[in-house]
Design a protein around this nucleic acid. Structure first.
Length: 417
RNA sequence: GGAGGAGUGGCCGAGUGGUUGAUGGCACCUGUCUUGAAAACAGGCAUGCGCGCAAGCGCAUCGGGGGUUCGAAUCCUCCCUCCUCCGCCA
């Protein structure tokens, strides 16, 4: 959610930001029109309520003095009825205002390169040597099937398409990756591990921005107001919803392993082979709560923490700075980490590290005290994959494959297997 | 799932229809005293929103929604959360 005062005082800047990210800038004018209507009505209602409050006090006093208050009471009865009508109208307007506010995406940070789509993204840096294979590299799903560690048929039988069964060493490798990542982030990068529910309520989904706009991307329970999380970002960020966190605890750094669930509506025919795009996948997520003036520094650190996973695994990757047009709904600035896939001869996203500034904090009511005298203020939230485990699994299969169809195991994983 | 109890400001805890946004205590801030600190004493101390250049004024908020009433923390109702007991259960 954007600061309503910012929209009021700086509508043109907001429009420009929305346009840069290909969002509907007319939302601003609609917001302003309704906002004005709301304020006008608010003044009116408040005045009537002030009148009523005064009269009610007076009635109390008069009654004590055994004076007649029948006329005044009748008058106030009418006034109350009028107030009730206006209250209802005001509530409706508030609802509309709120709906628009929740539909509005975040504004890009001013330094984010302006662009239309992923072709305008900037490569910030690249790391690692792509291995020189003396044979034609196989795809990870082929390797996995051949080794008997990935089974797509059985998964399709018990669940459907875009699911996978890990078997034997495959299951162990997936588990090893999770443990390796969590250990790295907790022991070397100072994150606190949490394990949170994967079913969350509507408020949590609104808080991080999955709702109301992206409901079709979510799995929802039929009989309960609960959704499966598409990322641990949701449950972990909402840990501090409606809280004023102690300033001396900032920055708060969490890492969380969780399975993630995405409907992938509208991605039919895209990445249908392999485990790149699944309805259910594992991910270790990094989440930070930071003071506003330090959040960009924290974004750099967060990205480096995610990168170090790839470095320790010896997987070549590059860091891409997303342009305004490619930014996610809630993000002000995002770095994608892309890992090398030899069989495709291209880099593919394996992590996305974003600073949401106060966008999620405002939706979720996450504040801290700052200044003198101390005043509660929205903090900044950040998160990034550290990393997507399934894609990491696939990248290891492809990058560490040998001509005989077997694979090497990265050194750092050996103690986990 | 069944029965009962509870939810008040940062915390504890009063308050069952009328100057109660809410007594008191703790914590916190300021001042006096002190070489300094502690103690004691005095004072201050909720949040959100709107109007206003400002001083300030007004509205809302006692888990959440709805209702009764001129007026609700207080009465009614639905919901949520927590606790106790029973049932079921990894």
């Amino acid at each position: 959610m954007l600061d309503p005062k910012l929209i009021r005082n700086n509508p043109d800047a907001v429009k420009k930001g929305l346009k840069n990210r290909k969002a509907d800038a007319s939302l601003v004018d609609r917001f302003l029109a309704i906002d004005e209507e709301w304020r006008k009505l608010t003044v009116e209602v408040d005045e009537l309520k002030a009148k009523r409050n005064k009269a009610s006090d007076q009635i109390g006093v008069l009654k004590k003095g055994k004076k007649d208050v029948g006329g005044l009471m009748a008058e106030m009865k009418e006034l109350s009825a009028r107030i009730k009508e206006l209250d209802e109208e005001q509530k409706k307007i508030e609802q509309r205002l709120n709906d628009i506010s929740l539909e509005m995406p975040n504004l890009p940070h001013h330094a984010v390169p302006v662009g239309v789509d992923s072709r305008d993204n900037l490569e910030a840096r690249a790391w690692g040597e792509k291995r020189n294979l003396s044979f034609k590299p196989k795809s990870h799903d082929e390797i996995g099937k051949n080794l008997g560690i990935l089974d797509f048929e059985q998964a399709a039988k018990i669940s459907g398409s875009r699911f996978v069964v890990y078997r034997g060493v495959g299951a162990a490798l997936e588990r090893a990756l999770i443990s390796f990542m969590l250990d790295l982030h907790t022991k070397e990068h100072g994150y606190t591990e949490v394990m949170t529910p994967v079913l969350v309520n509507t408020k949590s989904m609104l808080g991080t921005g999955q709702l109301p706009k992206f409901e079709e991307e979510l799995f929802k329970c039929r009989d309960d107001e609960l959704y499966l999380i598409p990322t641990a970002e949701v449950s972990v960020t909402n840990l501090h919803r409606e809280e004023i966190v102690k300033t001396d605890l900032l920055p708060i750094k969490y890492c969380c392993y969780s399975p993630c669930f995405r409907r992938e509506a509208g991605s039919y025919g895209k990445d249908v082979k392999g485990i790149i795009r699944q309805h259910q996948f594992n991910k270790v997520e990094l989440v930070k709560f930071a003071e506003p003036d330090k959040s960009y520094e924290e974004l750099e650190g967060l990205t480096k923490d995610a990168e170090s996973v790839l470095q320790k695994l010896g997987l070549p990757y590059r860091v891409v700075e997303l342009c305004t047009g490619d930014l996610g709904f809630a993000s002000a600035k995002t770095y994608d980490l892309e890992v090398w896939f030899p069989s495709e001869n291209q880099y593919r996203e394996i992590s996305s590290c974003s600073n949401f500034e106060s966008f999620q904090a405002r939706r979720a009511g996450i504040r801290f005290k700052s200044g003198l005298p101390a005043k509660a203020e929205y903090l900044h939230t950040l998160n990034g994959s550290g990393l997507a485990v399934g894609r990491c699994f696939a990248a290891i299969l492809e990058n560490y494959q040998k001509e005989d169809g077997s694979i090497d195991i990265p050194e750092v994983l050996k103690k986990y297997l």
